[in-house]
Amino acid sequence: MAQRVRDIMTSQLVTVEPQASVSAVARKMRDENVGAVLVTEGEELRGLVSDRDLVVRALAEGGDPEQKTVAAACSSDLVTVTPDEDLDHAVALMRERAVRRLPVVEDGRAVGIVSLGDMAIERDAESALGDISAAKSNR
């Protein structure tokens, strides 16, 4: 069983700039088959935006999604972990802060992301969440 964040994190990051339009980010999520992307400026992590964030913070407010930027929809008060942190600590942070994804940061830059689904697959692959998270996408 993996013991460190680096053992289960996704290191192929999908990122967008804060100025990207909500529509562009939604298309990128669809094309990359992900539910969240990191918002970066250069190599600096500025936020995280999930598909739910796009709906609740941008689309539900109205306006043109081609004109709205992702900066207004992303979570900027991020909880992060390092690759060498213990998985139990990452789980505790997710529970404490009620988040489903944690950006993984090393030397000030994003190097990965770990999700609730990643944890479920690692800790209890036979659970409903582990089973769903491991299933092939229906897209």
Rank of each mutant, 00 (worst) to 15 (best):
Leu59Cys: 07
Leu59Val: 15
Leu59Thr: 13
Ala60Leu: 11
Ala60Met: 08
Ala60Thr: 12
Glu61Phe: 05
Gly62Val: 11
Gly62Trp: 07
Gly62Met: 06
Gly62Gln: 09
Gly63Cys: 10
Gly63Trp: 09
Asp64Ala: 11
Asp64Thr: 12
Asp64Pro: 09
Pro65Leu: 11
Pro65Met: 11
Glu66Ala: 13
Glu66His: 14
Gln67Cys: 07
Gln67Phe: 04
Gln67Trp: 05
Gln67Arg: 14
Lys68Tyr: 02
Lys68His: 03
Lys68Gln: 12
Lys68Ala: 06
Lys68Leu: 06
Thr69Lys: 07
Thr69His: 07
Thr69Trp: 01
Val70Pro: 08
Ala71Leu: 12
Ala71Cys: 06
Ala72Asn: 07
Ala72Ile: 09
Ala72Arg: 14
Ala73Arg: 13
Cys74Trp: 07
Cys74Phe: 10
Ser75Gly: 03
Ser75Val: 06
Ser76Thr: 15
Ser76His: 14
Ser76Pro: 01
Asp77Gly: 06
Asp77Asn: 13
Asp77Cys: 07
Asp77Pro: 03
Asp77Ala: 13
Leu78Met: 07
Val79Lys: 01
Val79Ala: 00
Val79Thr: 03
Val79Cys: 00
Thr80Cys: 02
Val81Met: 02
Val81Gly: 01
Thr82Tyr: 04
Pro83Leu: 01
Pro83His: 03
Asp84Val: 11
Asp84Asn: 15
Glu85Lys: 12
Glu85Met: 15
Asp86Met: 06
Asp86Arg: 04
Asp86Ala: 08
Asp86Asn: 12
Leu87Thr: 13
Leu87Lys: 12
Leu87Gly: 08
Asp88Asn: 14
Asp88Val: 14
Asp88Lys: 09
His89Trp: 10
His89Val: 15
His89Lys: 11
Ala90Thr: 03
Ala90Asp: 01
Ala90Trp: 02
Ala90Phe: 02
Val91Glu: 15
Val91Gly: 02
Val91Ala: 14
Ala92Cys: 03
Ala92Lys: 11
Ala92Val: 05
Leu93Ser: 11
Leu93Cys: 09
Leu93Ala: 08
Met94Val: 07
Met94Glu: 04
Met94Cys: 06
Met94Leu: 08
Met94Asn: 08
Arg95Asn: 01
Arg95Asp: 02
Arg97Leu: 02
Arg97Pro: 03
Ala98Lys: 15
Ala98Trp: 11
Val99Pro: 00
Val99Phe: 10
Arg100Leu: 03
Arg100Thr: 13
Arg100Gln: 11
Arg101Pro: 00
Leu102Glu: 06
Leu102Lys: 13
Leu102Gly: 10
Leu102Asn: 09
Pro103Asn: 08
Pro103Ile: 13
Pro103Leu: 06
Pro103Tyr: 13
Val104Thr: 09
Val104Pro: 04
Val105Arg: 02
Glu106Asp: 12
Glu106Asn: 05
Asp107Gly: 08
Asp107Phe: 07
Gly108Ala: 13
Gly108Pro: 04
Gly108Val: 15
